[in-house]
Computed example of a mutant assay.
Amino acid sequence: MIDVHYWPTNNGIKVTILLEELGIPYRIVPVNLGRGDQFADDFLAISPNNRMPAIVDTEPSGGGPALSVFESAAILFYLAEKEGRFWPQDDVHARYEIVQWVVWQAANQGPKFGERGHFAQVPESAGDQSYARRRFDDEVHRLYGVLNNRLYDRRYVAGDTYTIADIAAYPYTMSWRQQGIDLDEFRYVRRWFEEISARPGVQRGLAVTAGPPEDPASLSAEELERRRGILFNQRARPAP
Rank of each mutant, 00 (worst) to 15 (best):
I181Y: 00
V202G: 06
S125C: 00
I196C: 03
A198D: 15
P123G: 11
G34V: 13
N148Y: 01
R35W: 14
R228S: 12
T209M: 06
Y162M: 01
I46A: 04
G110E: 15
D42H: 07
S72I: 09
T9D: 10
E124M: 08
A74V: 04
Y172V: 11
Q203V: 08
L147C: 02
G211V: 07
R133I: 05
L19Q: 08
P53G: 04
E81T: 12
P25Q: 06
R27K: 15
S68W: 06
R235Y: 03
L18D: 04
G110I: 00
P111E: 09
G180V: 09
V103K: 02
I24R: 05
R155E: 15
P171H: 07
Q38A: 13
Y144V: 12
F186G: 09
L19P: 07
E195P: 10
S61K: 11
A80C: 12
A158C: 08
T9L: 13
R85S: 10
N148A: 03
R187Y: 05
R177A: 14
A126I: 10
R135A: 07
Q89K: 11
N49W: 01
V102M: 03
R85C: 09
G229H: 09
D215Q: 05
P8H: 08
E71A: 06
A73T: 15
R187T: 09
S68Q: 13
A120V: 00
I46M: 08
F119V: 07
N233H: 12
R155N: 14
L219W: 04
Q178S: 15
L33P: 10
G205M: 08
Y188C: 07
Y144E: 08
D42K: 05
D138L: 13
A158W: 10
E97N: 14
A132D: 03
V99D: 06
E214D: 05
D37H: 01
G110F: 02
W104V: 10
I24E: 09
I2C: 03
A66W: 03
M174G: 10
E214F: 04
L143M: 11
D137N: 15
Y96T: 13
P53H: 05
F136H: 12
W87C: 00
V208M: 06
P53D: 05
G211R: 11
E139D: 05
P123S: 11
A40K: 15
P213F: 05
R191F: 00
D184T: 07
A239F: 10
G110H: 11
I13S: 01
L219T: 06
Q129P: 00
H118S: 06
R237Y: 06
E71H: 03
L224S: 03
